[in-house]
Simulated assay, not measured.
Amino acid sequence: MESLVNPLSGGIIIGLTAAAYLLLTGKVIGISGILAQALFSKDRYLPFLFILGLIIGGSAYGVLTQQTVPFPEMRSPILLIISGLLVGYGTRLGSGCTSGHGVCGISRLSPRSLVATGIFMTMAILTVFITK
C-alpha cells in the first residue's frame, strides 16, 4: 500500500494543478505551451511561475526524501540538442505535448488527444524496444 502513496498523491496534485490552471487562465496545461508562453508571450508571469514551481517542487521533493535520479549513461551533447529540437518540432506538429494531450486532452475525451497519446505511447514502446 505504501508504494501507491507517491504515484497517487502525484496524480492528484497534477490533476488539481491542471484544473486550477484551466480555471485561472482558461487554457489547458501542457508544458510545451506553457514554455512557449513564458518565452514569447506578453503575459509571461503565470507561465514563468508555473515552470519555476516545477523546478522548485521537484527539487524540494528530492531534497526532502533524499532521492536522486541516476543517469544511466552519458549522451553526446549534439545528440541531446538534436533530440530536443525534434521533440519541440513534434509538439508543434502535434499541437501539444504528452502532458497537454495525456493529462488534459484525455480527461476531456478529446479524440485528437486520444490519438496523439496512443501514438506517443506506441512510439515510446517501439523506441525502447529498438534501442534496448
Rank of each mutant, 00 (worst) to 15 (best):
V5F: 15
L39Y: 01
A38V: 01
H101D: 13
S95M: 08
M121K: 08
L79D: 05
S76H: 10
L85Y: 04
G105H: 08
I125K: 05
F40R: 04
T91K: 06
Y45Q: 02
T98N: 07
G96W: 04
G53S: 15
K42W: 00
K132I: 05
L109R: 14
G57A: 03
I106D: 09
I82M: 14
V28Y: 02
S107Q: 12
T68F: 02
F120D: 01
S76D: 14
L64D: 08
R112L: 08
L52D: 01
F129A: 11
A20M: 12
S32Q: 03
S3C: 06
C97L: 03
L114M: 09
M74S: 15
R44D: 01
D43E: 14
V5N: 02
P70L: 05
P111D: 07
G57I: 03
G58C: 11
I106S: 07
N6V: 15
T98P: 05
V128W: 13
T117F: 10
F71D: 00
R92W: 03
L114R: 11
A38S: 08
R44E: 00
L52N: 01
Y21K: 07
I106A: 09
L64R: 09
S107V: 10
L86W: 04
G53L: 09
L22D: 12
G84Q: 04
P77E: 01
E73P: 06
G62D: 05
S110Q: 14
A18T: 10
P47D: 03
L54S: 00
L35R: 01
T98K: 01
F129V: 11
S113A: 12
L35I: 13
V87K: 03
E2V: 10
A60I: 08
M74A: 15
R75Q: 06
T131N: 12
L23C: 06
I55C: 00
M121G: 05
G118Q: 14
G100D: 07
P72S: 13
L52A: 14
S3D: 09
S83A: 14
G105K: 11
L4Q: 07
P7F: 10
G100Q: 10
S95W: 14
G62A: 14
L24P: 03
S83N: 09
F71W: 08
L85D: 04
M121V: 13
T68I: 07
P77W: 00
V69G: 05
S41Y: 01
A116V: 15
I119T: 13
G15P: 07
K27E: 04
V115F: 15
A36M: 10
L23H: 11
L49T: 07
I106Q: 04
G58V: 04
S99Y: 02
T68V: 08
P72I: 13
A36K: 08
T122M: 12
V5K: 11
L126A: 15
S107P: 02
I13M: 14
D43R: 07
G58I: 01
Y45P: 00
P111E: 10
G33M: 04
Y89E: 09
K27I: 00
S113V: 03
V87M: 14
M1V: 13
P70F: 15
S99I: 13
T117G: 09
F120N: 02
S41G: 01
I34E: 01
L54K: 00
V128Y: 15
L22M: 08
G53N: 06
